[in-house]
Amino acid sequence: MNKQIVLKDDTGEFTVSIFQPPGASRTVLFAVGGGGNPCRHMPLLNMLAEQGCTVIAPHFERITSRLVSATELAMRIRRLRLALDFAARAEQAIYAVGHSIGSAILIGLAGGQMWMHDGKKLDFEADKRIERMVVFTPAMDFFTVPGALDEVRTPMQAWAGLLDSITLPSQTVFLKNTLGSLVDARFIEGAGHFSFMNELPPNVVDTIEKREPFFAQLNLEVSKFLFS
């Protein structure tokens, strides 16, 4: 059910994990965070596949700078779109799930204008095929220019950790305040930036002690929002 394929764009090859259960009736695009390895979210990806989804999860090099470059961001956007075009079936509904910078990219694909730290707008084509999305710890600094979210019409569930010091909970508050009823915002007591990753990065200790029940409830809420 889980396989890895290699795709190629004009800058080189990249790996895509694809979960394709028999009789899959819908598609989920997964956009990983700065670490670049979607396999750190394996239980979530498996849960989505068990719900009858083809899950498409491109791998990326780790972003090492605190300020992501326009080149890195454009490459991730391009490769997410290439992977989706390769593996998605035209007749299937498409959903999306992302973490951190991956969440920001999904909001951009939904029509958000992404503005870089140098004041320049990143130009790329939106992908209105995505019907619903779940965003964990969305990085909203790209969208603070007035009107940047005016074209976004995609319902989304947004999760924030109240102890997140990387993408502050205020960024999810901004998303909710700007898009209103389109956003089902969830603020989790005791959660940090990496609490939404099943496999933590090296040397990171999560602030949520009982992770198994947390992920059981998280996966249930994600599934209900996307597919109910």
Rank of each mutant, 00 (worst) to 15 (best):
L45H: 04
I56S: 03
F86D: 05
C39N: 10
C39Q: 11
L48H: 01
Y95M: 10
P58N: 12
C39R: 11
E50Y: 12
L48I: 06
A74V: 07
Q92T: 15
R62L: 06
A90N: 13
S65I: 09
A88W: 09
L48G: 04
R89Q: 15
P58A: 03
P43Q: 00
A93K: 15
M47T: 12
F60V: 04
L45G: 05
A57M: 05
N46Y: 01
I94N: 09
T64Y: 11
P43K: 02
S69P: 07
I77C: 00
L84I: 10
R62C: 12
T54M: 13
P58H: 08
I77D: 00
A87C: 15
R89H: 14
M47H: 14
A90K: 14
R40Y: 00
H41Y: 02
C39E: 06
I94V: 15
V68A: 12
L73W: 05
I94P: 13
C53E: 14
E72I: 05
T71Y: 03
Y95S: 12
A74S: 10
I94F: 08
L45C: 00
C53R: 14
I63F: 06
P43R: 04
L80E: 10
G52V: 14
L84G: 07
E61G: 13
A87E: 15
R76M: 06
H41R: 01
R79S: 02
R62V: 14
L73V: 08
M47W: 08
A70V: 10
T64P: 05
R40C: 02
Q92P: 14
R79L: 04
A74N: 08
M75N: 02
R66C: 07
G52P: 15
E72R: 03
I56D: 02
E91T: 15
T54L: 11
A96N: 04
C39F: 08
R76V: 01
A57R: 08
H41P: 03
A57I: 10
Q92K: 08
Y95V: 14
E72T: 08
R40V: 01
E50S: 11
P43F: 00
T54G: 05
C39S: 07
R81D: 07
G52D: 12
L44Q: 06
L44A: 03
F86W: 14
A93Y: 14
L44R: 04
A49L: 02
A49M: 00
L82K: 12
R62E: 15
R40D: 02
A74W: 01
E91D: 15
N46Q: 09
M75G: 01
S69H: 03
A70Y: 01
L82E: 11
C39L: 03
I63Y: 07
